[in-house]
Structure formats: C-alpha cells, structure tokens
Simulated scan of single mutants.
Amino acid sequence: MTFRPLHDRILVRRIEAEEKTAGGIIIPDTAKEKPQEGEVIAAGAGARDDTGQLQPLDVKVGDRILFGKWSGTEIRLNGEDFLIMKESDVMGVIEAEVKAKTAA
C-alpha cells in the first residue's frame, strides 16, 4: 500500500533516540520518551492561499525535521509506524554541516 498526503500534510517516520547517554548509561525502554525527530517520507503539494494560489511546502522528502511532542496523528502502514502532520507542526529542518577542508 502506498500513501500520498494531501495539501500541506507530511508523512514522517520517527528517528529512534539513542539507547545510551553520553556517559554510557543505558536507558531502559520504560524511561524513554518518544523521539521528536523524524524523516519526511512523503509530502503533499502544498496549501492554497486566499487567492487560490498553491503555496509549496518548505520541507521535502528526505528532510530530517524536529516537531512538537504531541504533534501529528500516529498511523500504521505496512506494519510500520508513521506520523501524519501539517507542515505548521514542524519546528525546523536539521541540516548537515559541511566542513570545508583546508589545504595544509
């Protein structure tokens, strides 16, 4: 089964949090919080403004995003858990840093 979000909605797969702290302490499943980071799997075309013009989304498939703790609706597709949320629930896109190499 495939899923295509409509309007300004996106389909997100949660990115699981680390099971160890920086100090090496293992966090049990009962103490873990749901991750607030995810990857955009599918995105709608965008919302229409008051004049009927299509406003494209700022996020795209493959983006790594941060979202609110209670954002979205949980669904299960093909045995996998996802979230459906509006683009306005997204707090930001995590961008990879590109380090410039300096010649020695």
Rank of each mutant, 00 (worst) to 15 (best):
M1D: 06
T2A: 12
L6W: 03
L6Y: 05
I10R: 05
I10T: 04
L11I: 13
V12W: 01
R14F: 10
E16P: 04
K20Q: 14
T21W: 05
G24T: 13
I26S: 10
P28H: 09
D29W: 05
D29Y: 07
T30N: 04
Q36K: 01
G38M: 03
G38K: 00
G38N: 07
I41T: 01
A43G: 02
A45P: 09
A45S: 14
A47C: 04
A47T: 10
T51L: 09
P56D: 12
L57W: 07
D58A: 15
D58P: 00
V59C: 11
V59K: 01
K60R: 13
V61K: 14
R64M: 09
L66P: 00
G68T: 02
G68P: 01
G68C: 03
G72D: 07
T73R: 11
E74Y: 07
E74N: 05
R76W: 04
L77F: 08
L77P: 03
N78V: 05
E80V: 11
F82Q: 02
I84P: 00
M85F: 05
M85G: 01
M85V: 02
S88H: 08
S88R: 14
V90N: 07
M91L: 14
M91K: 10
G92Q: 10
V93T: 15
V93F: 05
I94W: 08
I94E: 14
E95S: 12
A96E: 15
A96W: 04
V98K: 06
A100G: 08
K101G: 09
T102I: 10
T102R: 04
